[in-house]
Amino acid sequence: MTEFGFKLSQSNRIDLDETDNSVFKKVAIIVPDIKLCFNCGSCSASCTSTHFKRVSFRSAILLLNRGHNKEAISMLKSCMLCGKCILVCPRGIDTRNIIINILKAEEEMK
């Protein structure tokens, strides 16, 4: 589809035709749990770090799946790995393992 050049900034739209979610897929091979999220928000709500900074595991993996890797990673940087999100997740997602693998993937990208 043609993007008309009326805007100065890039389109805000998530374009699934252009999305590169290879990082998500890479992490999904190591921790398949990442695909199980149904976005209930329990993890973000109980997050110890969320008082201080916008930390949201749920948003992060959703953004990662949409190819917005930078934004996703910025949401995990203040994670303390305390494990509350593991306990509240109704799907039993191994959140900390996913966070560590995403951040490791970031280190590799550097």
């Binding site: 976005n39 209930c40 928000g41 329990s42 993890c43 973000s44 709500a45 109980s46 949201s56 749920r58 509240v88 109704p90």
Partner: peptide
């Protein structure tokens, strides 16, 4: 739209509910 993750109680006996407004 968000699942309640924790419930606490404040000094006045009010329930403090935490969730994410997803």
């Amino acid at each position: 739209r968000g699942r309640v993750s924790e419930v606490g109680e404040d000094e006045n006996g009010k329930l403090v509910v935490k969730a994410e407004d997803t």
